[in-house]
Design a protein around this nucleic acid. Structure first.
Length: 867
RNA sequence: GGCCUUGUAGCUCAGUUGGUUAGAGCGCUCCCUUCACACGGGAGAGGUCCACAGUUCGAGUCUGUGCAAGGCCACCA
């Protein structure tokens, strides 16, 4: 039963991790009448591996989940992974490229097979890693977004949205990534400030000796211009209404239109219109029924419609267009210009706005319900400040382009008839066109990854079937996730959940912070500043990493994470380990067999028990209150700090030290031991959600049943009746006396081992004083001179040679200064009529009481200074 | 351009509803290898709570302005 001298988590963490999974103890079994806590994991990319952000997220989730479980709730943490369409496809494409292969050459089926193979190989990594960090998930309910059940949910959703008129197919301007060769949503397009130019080009007016100067950041798009816009109110150009201009290079005559798109205040007040390659121009083109000329294709090359420039890359074409304009004397001027350029969030390629036929979800009606849900607190977002961001985005939401020109994902359940042009959207694969019996062709595209993850809280529970799991666990209680996917994911789940389940997908959303490095930089592979959770987990132990993360996890703030933090967390674990070691060594020495209270949460020392026993249970109770409150409010850093202080300060520094006085000579299990063991066990329970491995290990060493887990034991609850003010006061006094004596020793530079004698003005536990301060005290009158310390509660003095009193004097003088300041301060307030008439009596009384204490102390100090 | 967040000890951060001596960890100084633990123990030093103004009997905490830093959103040629 002895413990190794040093805490080595590597020796037991993997064992418990494995046992927690194999024993199946975290399988959620519903029973009537018990509260339910359910949560679905934000599914990580199936082919990814755990980074520090995951570890933080999973630790916060796990603390909450373990706490709920220990409080007796039926607790479900549903794990799983996401197929991550573009991301995964890109990874596999890169692999293929390194083998000299190309997905187009190998064909769709072979490519999909290849991705599944890659998923089979690397898809288990996340799960293994989650198990290793102690995530207490219900693995029997693990899901993957491409599972057959979830695919059925996707299809049901698609078809149903189509039937409700909330999904349509149409030709619109989309963000096109020429490298990924697919449309991407607005959210996947990052706008970056990029240095560019503003080219001013001369367009000659037909039939007049006049040129119009238009400005553009993308001269190559002029090849597709079909109009020039002016504002009807712009008096500079009233004479040009109804006229046309000749488009340079293309030798095309295009109309001058009147449209508000042209702002008279900006530049020349003229705008060239390229309906096929600019969102605003597209809209203007529709308003004026302008022809749409596509001059740039899916690979960002100029099309045949681009005349002499056909086949050129867009940037090459830009150069040539500018050169040619210059030669013709049609380039008016060029100025530097910073523009906000849309880039693909995956590959950073500049996005090309293209008109193309895509599927869109009509989001407005869905968003309205999501806004209302947050408004009415049916979904509570924590911290609250995200509500504003949420509302702003929801109110300005645009239709969601959900089709992707990829091969990895859910194939769109739409078929087109070549013969009659019919579109069939169906839950089952249709054999032929229902209209003309012609041959059908399925849409080659797949759905946006977020379409399927948007269904996650209910698709994972069996929807569209009416399952028991849905009935019991939906809506989920809580979602813990990062703000980076608030719109991508949380918003979509909310909209789709409300639409299809008729209820919100989660009652609360807790948004955690970002993990940053010592320089407050985001951790990223490219910056090379990542701390790999698995590396540090191996080196320091999972518990230490969890504690290190949580200790900085205040709501609404990012977490600065350094190895220093892990170091001190491991020191903390080591401290507990050694406290346990102390217990076990002494149990053996005293012939105490392992013992556990039947109901440790109901355990209380007798009224006649030693005061430190009554005190520690009073403290434990306070710690339980803080822990419960903190975790309930997602104040993880406070929970960590609370248990940290209870263990270091109350338990180790005072309780164990005081306790040593009691049982050194004892033999066998007595009340002293029972109290000590009961506190220790409770402490393990309090700590368990934060440090599950260490606590499970020690709990079993304490004698817990082999088949039982501390994670299924009851979490200590707060009971106000357990506050023992008498014990708190008595130990508080003792602590003050001992601290004062130690302080005296330090002030006077006395040898710590030198036995000292002294006097004190009142009764305290002299054995404790002797043991912890090395001073033998006697009760009696305290001489005014000598090495003295005083508080409102006591005076004390120790006998030392006179020569050593100088240091003491300095200290007393310093104390006197402070007291005089405090007294002046208190007196000032107490003589302030307005303060006395307006401040609550409680505050005034406490100041009066304090003033009394200050004055009493001051008298004592002055006595000894003068004496 | 709109919105959000942050500014407290050398560093990283706490500070619940405004209550008078502002806390922790790490780091630093001094002392101690005492029979659980040097991954330890003890005693300390260190702060005009970014600035200014306001509300209040009372402001680190509330309001406004400014300065500084970070982030999110947005189709302005």
């Amino acid at each position: 039963m002895q413990l190794d001298k040093v805490y080595e988590p590597q020796r037991f963490e993997p064992r418990w991790a494995q046992w927690w999974v194999e024993s199946g103890i975290y399988r959620a079994e519903w029973q009537p009448g018990r509260p339910v806590f359910s949560l679905v994991i934000p599914p990580p990319n199936v082919t990814g591996s755990l980074h520090m952000g995951h570890m933080l997220e999973h630790t916060e989730i796990d603390v909450t989940v373990r706490w709920h479980r220990m409080r007796g709730d039926i607790t479900l943490w549903l794990p799983g992974t996401d197929h991550a369409g573009i991301a995964t496809q890109m990874v596999v494409e890169r692999q293929l490229a390194s083998e000299g292969l190309d997905r187009r050459a190998m064909g769709r089926e072979a490519f999909e097979e290849r991705v599944w193979k890659w998923k089979a190989e690397s898809g288990g990594t996340i799960k293994r890693q989650m198990i290793r960090i102690g995530a207490s998930c219900d693995w029997s309910r693990e899901r993957f977004t491409l599972d057959p059940g979830l695919s059925r949910a996707v299809r049901e959703t698609f078809v149903s949205l189509y039937e409700k008129g909330l999904l349509y197919r149409g030709e619109y301007m989309v963000n096109w990534c020429p490298r990924c060769q697919t449309a991407i949503s607005d959210l996947e397009t990052m706008h970056e400030e990029t240095a560019g130019h503003l080219w001013h080009i001369r367009y000659p007016v037909v039939g007049r000796d006049r040129v119009l100067v238009v400005a553009t950041t993308r001269p190559e798009t002029m090849l597709g211009d079909t109009a020039v816009a002016i504002n009807a109110r712009d008096e500079r150009y009233t004479d040009l209404h109804g006229k046309t201009v000749r488009l340079p290079l293309m030798d095309r005559e295009i109309p001058i239109i009147l449209d508000d798109i042209a702002d008279p205040e900006f530049g020349t007040g003229l705008v060239k219109i390229t309906p096929a390659h600019d969102v605003n121009d597209f809209e203007a083109g529709k308003r004026h029924a302008l022809p749409m000329i596509r001059v740039i294709d899916e690979s960002a090359k100029i099309t045949a419609a681009g005349g002499a420039y056909a086949g050129l890359d867009r940037y090459e074409a830009r150069k040539r267009v500018v050169e040619d304009l210059e030669k013709l004397g049609l380039l008016d001027s060029v100025q530097d210009y910073v523009l906000s350029l849309g880039k693909c969030s995956r590959c950073k390629t500049a996005v090309e706005p293209l008109v193309s036929k895509q599927w869109f979800v009509r989001t407005k009606p869905l968003a309205e319900k999501a806004i209302a849900a947050v408004d009415e607190k049916r979904i509570e977002i924590i911290p609250e400040n995200w509500v504003k961001t949420w509302n702003e985005w929801m109110h300005n939401i645009r239709d969601w382009c959900v089709s992707r020109q990829l091969w990895w994902g859910h194939r769109i359940p739409a078929w087109y008839c070549d013969a009659c042009g019919e579109t069939v959207v169906s839950r089952t694969d249709p054999a032929s066109c229902p209209k003309c019996a012609g041959t059908l062709r399925q849409d080659p595209d797949v759905l946006d990854t977020w379409f399927s993850s948007g269904l996650w809280p209910f698709s994972t529970l069996g929807w569209p079937d009416k399952t028991d799991d849905l009935k019991h666990f939906y809506p989920t209680t809580l979602l813990i996730t990062g703000f980076d996917i608030l719109f991508f994911w949380v918003a979509r789940m909310s909209m789709l959940g409300i639409e299809f389940m008729g209820d919100v997908p989660f009652r609360q959303v807790y948004i955690h912070g970002l993990v940053r490095d010592a320089e407050k930089q985001k951790m990223s592979k490219t910056k090379g500043n990542v701390i790999d959770p698995l590396v540090v987990t191996e080196e320091y132990g999972t518990d230490a990493v969890r504690m290190a993360l949580l200790s900085g996890a205040a709501p609404g703030t990012d977490i600065v994470f350094t190895v220093d933090r892990i170091d001190s967390a491991r020191a903390f674990a080591n401290k507990i380990w050694n406290a346990a070691r102390f217990l076990f060594l002494n149990m053996e020495r005293c012939g105490v067999d392992p013992w556990m209270a039947e109901d440790v949460n109901g355990w209380l020392p007798d009224a006649g028990a030693p005061v430190e026993d009554r005190w520690i249970f009073s403290r434990l109770n306070g710690c339980a209150r803080e822990m419960n409150r903190s975790i309930e409010q997602y104040r993880y850093h406070e929970a960590a700090q609370t248990v940290w202080h209870f263990i270091y300060d109350d338990f180790c520094d005072w309780y164990i030290e005081l306790k040593k006085l009691r049982f050194v000579e004892s033999s066998g299990l007595n009340d002293d031991w029972r109290n000590l063991l009961a506190v220790f066990e409770s402490l393990l329970r309090l700590l368990h959600p934060v440090m599950p491995f260490l606590t499970e290990e020690l709990w079993h060493r304490l004698g817990a049943d082999e088949e039982k887990s501390i994670s299924l034991s009851a979490f200590p609850r707060f009971d106000p009746a357990r506050y023992d003010s008498e014990a708190e006061n008595e130990i508080g006094l003792l602590q003050n006396v001992i601290t004062a004596l130690r302080g005296l020793r330090a002030d006077l530079s006395l040898d710590p081992k030198l036995p000292l004698e002294g006097r004190i003005s009142r009764e305290v536990d002299f054995r404790a004083v002797q043991k912890l301060a090395g001073v033998t005290l006697a009760v009696g009158d305290v001489p005014k001179s000598g090495a003295v310390r005083s508080t409102a509660d006591f005076n004390l003095m120790i006998d030392v040679p006179h020569g050593q009193l100088e240091a003491q004097k300095k200290r007393l003088e310093k104390e006197r200064e402070q007291l005089l300041k405090n007294i002046a301060n208190s007196q000032r307030q107490l003589s302030d009529e307005v303060f006395l008439s307006k401040a609550p009596a409680k505050v005034i009384d406490s100041i009066r009481a304090k003033l009394g204490e200050y004055e009493a102390q001051l008298r004592k100090i002055e006595d000894s200074l003068n004496g």
